[in-house]
Computed example of a mutant assay.
Amino acid sequence: MRRRTTEEGHGLMRITLVQGDITTQDVDAVVNAANSSLLGGGGVDGAIHRRGGPAILAECRHLRASHYDRGLPTGQAVATTAGDLPARWVIHTVGPVHSSAEDRTHLLASCYRESLRVADELGATSIAFPAVSAGVYGWPMGDAARTAVDTVWATPTQVTDVRFVLFTPDAYAAFENALDTTGS
C-alpha cells in the first residue's frame, strides 16, 4: 500500500492505493463503476451488488422508476445505501466506453468529480474508487489512472481520505505511476 499526502488549497487530502477488493473497504462511500441501468452487471458493479445485497438493488430500482427512467447518464453520479457493505453509501457512476475515434476523457473525469460532489452532499470524508471504465469499457489503464488521479487532486472537496482500490497488479502499477508523475 502506498500513501501520499498533499495540501491542495481545499483541505488535506490523502490518496491511498490498495490492491484488493473494493467491497471490503471500510469507508463512508464506495464508488460503483455502474452501467446506466443501475441494475447490476459484471466486474465491480456485479461484485458490489452481490456483496451489498438486495437493499442496493431496491434503491437502484426506485431511482430508475423516479428519476432515471432512461438510465443514469454517462459521467453523472447518484448515491444509494451500501446495504451489507462496510461502507455507508454506494455512489454509482457511469463511465464512458473508450473510443479511439472520439476523445471522451471529459466524461471519465466527470465520473470522479461528480462522485466527489455526491460524497460532499452526503457528508462523506472517505471514499474508495475503482478504475472507472478500465475494465470491459476498454479504457487503457495508464490513461484511466492519470485521468483519475489528476481529476481527484484538482477537485475541491471535503473528502480527506481517497482510496483507489485496484483489483490487479497491473492496475495498481498504473495508478502508482500516475501518482509518481502527477503535477501535485
Rank of each mutant, 00 (worst) to 15 (best):
L166H: 04
V44S: 07
S110F: 13
R70L: 05
A101L: 12
Y112D: 00
R113H: 14
R50M: 04
G135M: 05
H92S: 12
A119Q: 14
V31E: 00
T6P: 00
C60T: 08
H49R: 07
H67G: 05
A173N: 02
A154L: 10
G41A: 03
P169L: 09
G135Q: 05
L122M: 06
I56Q: 08
R88F: 02
T147C: 14
N177T: 12
G42Y: 02
P96G: 07
G123H: 05
H92R: 11
V118I: 15
A148P: 09
L17Y: 05
S133V: 03
D69W: 03
I91S: 08
G75K: 05
A131Y: 09
A79Y: 08
Q19I: 01
V78L: 08
A55P: 13
T80P: 04
C60I: 06
A144N: 06
V27W: 09
C111D: 00
R3T: 14
Y68K: 03
V31G: 03
R61I: 13
R51T: 14
L108M: 13
A171Q: 10
G42V: 01
L116P: 13
G142C: 06
E8M: 10
F167W: 15
L63A: 11
M141V: 10
P54L: 04
D45A: 00
V78H: 06
G183R: 13
H49E: 04
R117D: 06
G46H: 06
V30E: 01
V94P: 08
H106P: 11
R113Q: 15
R70Q: 10
G11D: 08
A119D: 08
F129H: 06
G75M: 05
E121T: 15
R104L: 13
S66D: 02
D170P: 08
A101E: 10
T74M: 01
H98M: 05
T93V: 08
Y68F: 10
I56A: 12
W89E: 00
A144H: 08
N32Q: 05
G71P: 04
T181V: 06
D28A: 07
V97M: 11
A34C: 01
R64N: 04
A131F: 08
A34F: 01
Q25P: 04
L63F: 07
T155F: 04
R3A: 12
G135C: 01
V118D: 09
Q25D: 06
L72H: 00
P169E: 13
H106S: 15
L108G: 12
E102T: 14
G43V: 00
T182Y: 00
I22E: 07
T24I: 09
V149L: 01
A124I: 06
G138F: 02
T81R: 07
T157G: 04
G183V: 11
E8V: 09
V31D: 00
A47D: 02
D143E: 15
T155G: 03
F175Q: 04
T6Q: 07
T93D: 02
H106A: 14
P54W: 08
H10M: 09
V30D: 01
G41R: 00
I48Q: 01
D150H: 14
E102R: 12
G53K: 14
L39V: 02
G53A: 10
Y68W: 06
R163Y: 12
